[in-house]
Structure formats: C-alpha cells, structure tokens
Design a binder for these strands. Structure first.
Lengths: 138, 138
DNA sequence: ATAATTGCAAATGCTTTGCTTGTGA
DNA sequence: TCACAAGCAAAGCATTTGCAATTAT
C-alpha cells in the first residue's frame, strides 16, 4: 500500500510540481486495480473531490506519462487507458468478450522483434504487442 | 494492375452493391502505394470526382472492412489507416522519423503468440504487433 | 513575487448519423 | 419499383486549449 508515495516521490525526482489535484490523481492511479481511461479515472476522483476538472485529469495523465511515471495504452477503442509505469516491461492480452486485460511477458518474442527490426535495417525503439483472445472453457 | 477488379469481384461475392462512388474508392485503394487515412483517401478521390462526400468515404471503408475486403489499422495516431486486405497476414514496422510503414511476417513470433495465449487459458482470435524503429545509418 | 496550475467553456479533429434526394438491381 | 446509397450539415466523443483566477515554491 501507500504506493502513491511512489508516484509522489517520482514527481519530486522529476521536478513535477505537486498540487492537491495531482496528489489525488496519483493516489487513485496507484490504488486502481486495472487500466482506467480518463473518464473512469475522473469519475473515481470526483467521488473524493467533486470539484476537480476533467481537463486537469487530462493534463495530469499527459504530464505523468511524459515524465515516465505512468504508461498510456491505446487498445482497440477510441480512447486511451493508463497504468502505473511498470517496473518491468510487459504486453497485454485482451479478453474480447469481457474486455479484461491480462499482462504477460515473453522474452523470446522480445528478442525476435529486435532481430526482425534489425534485419529490416532499423533499431527497435519501441513496440506494441496485443493479443486478443477468448477464454477457453473447460 | 487492374487490381481494382479484385475489390469489385469481392464486392459482388459478398453481395456488396456497387455504385460509382464505391467503384472509385476501390480503384484508388487498389492503386495507392501505402496505408492511407480517410482524409488522404478522400483527397485523392476528389481529384477524380470532386463531388464525392467524405461521409461516403467513411461509410465505404467501414463497409469494405466489415466485408473483409480491406484492413483497418490504428497506429499511434488519432486516426485510422487502411490497406487492401492482404493475401497473407503480416505485421508492421513504423519508421518513427518518417512515418514510413514496412510490412513483415515472422512465423516464429506468430507461433509464440498462440502459445502465450493458450498458456493464459485463451484461444488467440487476433493480435496486433507493431514495431517502431529508427533507420540504422551505414 | 511570480511562474505554473486550475476550472470552465469553447474549440478541435476524427468519425458517425439524420434526413432528403438519388440510384442500382 | 423500392430497398439501399449519397450528400450535406449537424451531432458525437475524446482530447486540447485560451483565459482569468488561484496556488506552490
């Protein structure tokens, strides 16, 4: 718990000025279970501070993301989702029926991606891998 | 060349009614070199028929996509890009400096994706893999 | 003090839609 | 003929921005 202190610490470290609003957004981002979009985030935050503007939430997630404090994902929706910057890189599997997001890592795939890029004459600077699947029933 | 006949043939096959506008969109989609967004597509089409509405282009690419005639991609932009439905599946490497899109296939990665999904209890129904890279200078 | 941040509402950019007129099979 | 398609403008949605008031350092 108290993981929000983590985000606050990283803000100081990056000279990101802390305000009540930012502290609150950091706290909610830390405690939230999944990968919220801005609307969901704002809704949750509003339950604590009803005066906070959605524009502030937009500005703050952008700020945090640019500082590498949280990560932004664009799955197959017309909006972005966010998560605390993960310690270790991972990719996502999305349940096509429920929308549930599962994180995974696979080193073999990572290596192959790098190899593919190099073969094409490119240095791999980033990638996006999403698997879409439906649950296998027993 | 005359690849547009391909799209037209597939329209008939799927009982997609052909109109002058759809024929034109099919033709331009067939001849275009890269992965256009709707704005680019509409611009190109307008050079031939200036009366065509962008709403029609939106409706048509959606229709073609749902019929499996063309494919839609959402790279890291706030708009979608389209390409003729490829005969064989492939993924994309995007040049982060120029925006150039390079197609590639890698069977090993494909197999690993399937394996990963299964290990998580899912049947892989689709995936998205994009590599972002910068050109290696000699 | 003062440069940065907030809230609000208006603006933006892509995409969709309601409605009337036009058209392919 | 007549269900479906096109054109136009308006509406939708997520996101951004201008500006005046507020706040952190």
């Amino acid at each position: 718990m108290r993981e929000n202190f983590d985000i606050e610490a990283r803000c100081k470290q990056k000279s990101v000025r802390l305000t009540d609003q930012r502290r609150l957004i950091a706290k909610v981002m830390s405690e939230i279970e999944n990968h919220p979009d801005v609307g969901e985030l704002h809704k949750k935050i509003s339950e604590i501070d009803s005066k906070i503007s959605i524009a502030t939430v937009y500005r703050t997630v952008k700020l945090f993301e640019e500082a590498g404090i949280i990560a932004k994902h664009d799955f197959r929706e017309n909006k972005s989702r966010y998560e605390k910057a993960p310690d270790k890189h991972h990719d996502h599997l999305i349940d096509v029926n429920t929308g549930k997001i599962i994180e995974f890592t696979n080193n073999e795939i990572e290596k192959l991606q790098k190899k593919v890029a190099e073969k094409l004459g490119y240095k791999l600077v980033d990638h996006r891998l999403e698997l879409y699947g439906s649950k296998i029933k027993k």
